[in-house]
C-alpha cells in the first residue's frame, strides 16, 4: 500500500515522513548510514579500497607511472583523479561517454583533494625536471545510492593511506631508471580530508530541512543530481563548501550543516583508522 502511495503521490508521501521527523529508511535527519571499508582488495592495483556507505559502493584503485615533470613546474609530480559512473551502477546512466554528472563529481572530488592539501605534489617528484610519479586514482562507482562524493573521498583517502611508493634510482648521466619494488616508502598524507553531503529540502516552502548523507531517492526529491550541499574538512579546518543548485539555504542552516559535518568527519576518521589498523598498512 505504502509503495503505491509513494508512486502516486511522491511529494506528499515524502512530506508525511518529514512531518514526523523521520526519513524513509528510518534514520533521523542528522544520521548517516553505516560505512564499511576494506583496503588492498585488488592485487593488480598499487593501492586499493572498497567502501560501502549504506548501499553506495565505490572501488578505488591507484596505479603508479613514471613521467617527466612539466617544464613550468619541474619539481611537482602528478595526481590524477577520475570518477567513473558506468551504466552498471544505476539505471539512470546509459552506456557511452562520461555523463555531465560524472564529470561534475570528478571535478568536485579533485577540487576537494587539491584544496585540502593532503598531498604535497613535491613528494611525488623524484628528480626535478627529469622524473616524477604519476598517481592515477580511478574511482569506479558500482552501486549509486546517493552521497557519491563522500564515498569517493573515503575510498580515495583509504587507498592513499595504504599506498607505498617504490624507491627509484635515477642515474643523471646515463638517464637510466631503476625501480626497486622491494624497497617501498609510505606516501606522506597531511591530514584526512572527509566530505559530508547534505540534501536541502524545502518543507512546505517555509521550513528548510537538512538531510545528512542522503540516499539516491532523497537526492531526487531535493532537486536532483548534483544539488547537494557538500562540506569538506581536513584536520579540523574547512577545506571546501559546494552547493550547486537545489533549495536555498539560510545562514543558520549553513552553520548547522558545518557543525554536523565536523561531527561526521570525526566518525569517518575513526572508521578509516580502525580499518587500517586492522589490516596493517603493509601489503
Amino acid at each position: 500500500m505504502s509503495e503505491v502511495y509513494k508512486l502516486i503521490h511522491p511529494v506528499k508521501h515524502f512530506n508525511d515522513y518529514i512531518s514526523i521527523k523521520t526519513r524513509l529508511d528510518g534514520r533521523n535527519f542528522d544520521e548517516h548510514r553505516n560505512i564499511k571499508l576494506n583496503v588492498n582488495s585488488i592485487k593488480t592495483a598499487d593501492a586499493s579500497a572498497v567502501v560501502k556507505c549504506g548501499n553506495t559502493t565505490v572501488v578505488c584503485g591507484i596505479k603508479l607511472e613514471l613521467a617527466v615533470p612539466k617544464a613550468e613546474e619541474p619539481d611537482l609530480g602528478f595526481l590524477i583523479t577520475n570518477v567513473e559512473l558506468p551504466a552498471l551502477c544505476s539505471s539512470k546512466y546509459r552506456p557511452g561517454p562520461p555523463s555531465d554528472y560524472a564529470q561534475v563529481i570528478n571535478n568536485i572530488v579533485s577540487e576537494i583533494i587539491k584544496n585540502s592539501k593532503c598531498i604535497d605534489l613535491k613528494d611525488l617528484c623524484i628528480v626535478p625536471d627529469k622524473l616524477a610519479w604519476v598517481v592515477y586514482c580511478d574511482m569506479v562507482c558500482i552501486d549509486h545510492d546517493g552521497s557519491l562524493v563522500d564515498a569517493c573521498i573515503i575510498a580515495l583517502i583509504a587507498s592513499f593511506k595504504t599506498l607505498l611508493l617504490p624507491s627509484v634510482n635515477y642515474d643523471t648521466e646515463t638517464e637510466e631508471i631503476k625501480v626497486e619494488t622491494n624497497e617501498r616508502i609510505n606516501l606522506k598524507i597531511h591530514g584526512l580530508p572527509v566530505a559530508t553531503s547534505f540534501a536541502v529540502y524545502e518543507h512546505f516552502q517555509s521550513q528548510i530541512i537538512l538531510l545528512t548523507d542522503p540516499t539516491n531517492y532523497e537526492e531526487e526529491m531535493c532537486g536532483g543530481n548534483g544539488s547537494n550541499l557538500i562540506i569538506s574538512y581536513n584536520k579540523g579546518l574547512l577545506c571546501g563548501i559546494q552547493k550547486l543548485g537545489g533549495g536555498s539555504l539560510s545562514t543558520e542552516n549553513n552553520e548547522e550543516a558545518i557543525r554536523l559535518a565536523e561531527q561526521h568527519t570525526i566518525a569517518v576518521e575513526k572508521v578509516i583508522n580502525a580499518c587500517l589498523e586492522g589490516k596493517g598498512t603493509n601489503k
Binding site: I42, K63, P86, A87, Y136, D138
Partner: peptide, 11 residues
C-alpha cells in the same frame, strides 16, 4: 545488450 568493461586498475 551487453557491455564489457575493465577497470583501469584491473591489469
Amino acid at each position: 545488450n551487453c557491455q564489457y568493461s575493465m577497470a583501469t586498475f584491473s591489469t
